[in-house]
Design a protein around this nucleic acid. Sequence first.
DNA 1: AATGTCTTCAACCGCCACCGA
DNA 2: GTCGGTGGCGGTTGAAGACAT
Length: 183
Amino acid sequence: MAKRLCCESMGMRKGPWSAEEDHILISHIQTHGHANWRALPKQAGLLRCGKSCRLRWINYLRPDIKGGKFSEEEQDSILKLHQILGNKWSTIAARLPGRTDNEVKNFWNTHLKKRVQNANISNYSYTTLQEAQASDGSSSLASNKDPSIVSCDTNLEQSMGNHGSCQISEEMEFWYNVFIKSG
DNA sequence: AATGTCTTCAACCGCCACCGA
DNA sequence: GTCGGTGGCGGTTGAAGACAT
């Protein structure tokens, strides 16, 4: 595949978005939608690349963005989902209405990661999908095996210094069911 | 008050998957 | 089957603000 230049194209603006640019993007999308991100900036008269427009819209301008601080429940959800899914930020964000993958990723990296690292020695139990599958006894799940989850488990294992008990708690089973069984 | 260090998070980059020609 | 275009994702960066000395 040919290497794309994206924002390196001549004349493209980079860096923080101005209020005016936001306004242009919002009104253009409200009027014309965003069927083609690459063509959008040109149509809207923005000196941004399509990727940048898409990111700005998805993460900050969409009307259904909740914004603000993460509630305790949300934090709890992220922790649990991350145990199961690893760094699948978009999948995790999809389970948190009004939150974006970037938001979740940033929150994890700045807050929860430390929290987990601090707590891991004591009681941050975790499991692997394989173990979950084994405990569930459902053979159909084997086909859903995602290599990324395996690697995430490896990372977790490393980051947690192998302190996890690997026991499947009821809570984990619940979240496992939510994800895997609901597809 | 001035300076250095740390933290946060918006934005960018590179890669990959998917789709149509 | 392959190629190019596009959307989407996760990792990373760097500016700005907060905090410590």
